[in-house]
Amino acid sequence: MEGTGRKFEKLQEIVARHEGKVSHLIAILQEVQHEYRYLPEEVLTYIATALNIPPAVVYGVATFYAQFSLVPKGKYVIRVCDGTACHVRGSEPIHFALRKELGLAEGQQTTDDLQFTVETVSCLGACGLAPVVTINDQEVHGQMTPEDVLRVLRAIKAGESQEERREAHA
């Protein structure tokens, strides 16, 4: 499998950048997840071998922290805040509208084409902007409505830039 060789080559680069230090395990996992959008099992095993630690240690860290995912995520990770302020101001209908528009079945977070992942989070720390939605932890959209979030989603699908989406929301 051609992609496998490239995968392990990239992993070697990441581990080498961190000088194979076990104390850098979280940073290594963060870089690997950024590269692959999740942490495949064979990658965790490779990292354990490269750092000369038991696979259970790597797996334990990868499953302990909520930032890590063992399943593939979409190119666009959309997080809908459901903290108290966001919930009271209508985050549930926003979440429902996204899931319906993307055709996500009950329990499914990621679209089959791996373009979108929709997650609910407890707090995004922007309560004054409630309800809040983020895209890839880089774009923050406040005071959203179901209609607003669908506009943002359709703009992403249409290939509009972040700036164009920001202007459309203003």
Results as ranks from 00 to 15, higher is better:
117 T>N: 02
51 L>I: 01
60 G>K: 15
83 G>A: 08
93 P>T: 07
110 T>H: 04
144 M>R: 02
11 L>Q: 10
132 V>C: 00
137 D>E: 09
144 M>W: 06
84 T>Q: 11
154 R>G: 02
162 Q>N: 11
4 T>A: 13
58 V>W: 11
141 H>W: 15
103 G>T: 08
59 Y>G: 01
24 H>N: 13
104 L>M: 07
134 T>F: 03
138 Q>S: 10
39 L>M: 07
34 H>N: 15
57 V>R: 13
119 E>R: 03
71 V>Q: 13
138 Q>G: 04
154 R>N: 14
60 G>Q: 15
23 S>F: 12
139 E>V: 09
56 A>M: 12
54 P>L: 06
38 Y>Q: 06
138 Q>K: 11
104 L>V: 07
79 R>Y: 13
19 E>D: 14
37 R>E: 12
137 D>S: 02
53 I>G: 01
67 Q>I: 11
89 R>V: 03
133 V>F: 01
68 F>D: 13
41 E>Q: 15
42 E>F: 05
89 R>I: 05
82 D>W: 04
2 E>N: 14
51 L>F: 03
167 E>R: 13
103 G>K: 06
96 F>G: 02
141 H>Y: 15
18 H>N: 15
26 I>V: 15
149 V>F: 08
109 Q>M: 13
11 L>A: 09
49 T>G: 03
82 D>N: 09
121 V>A: 00
90 G>S: 11
70 L>M: 08
98 L>Q: 03
83 G>Y: 11
78 I>Y: 14
9 E>N: 12
44 L>T: 09
67 Q>T: 12
6 R>Y: 14
113 D>G: 02
98 L>C: 01
49 T>F: 05
14 I>H: 09
78 I>P: 06
68 F>A: 07
85 A>C: 09
27 A>D: 15
93 P>K: 07
123 C>V: 01
119 E>Q: 06
48 A>I: 04
3 G>C: 06
80 V>T: 09
93 P>Y: 12
2 E>W: 14
97 A>C: 04
112 D>R: 12
17 R>S: 12
20 G>V: 07
126 A>T: 03
85 A>H: 12
92 E>S: 08
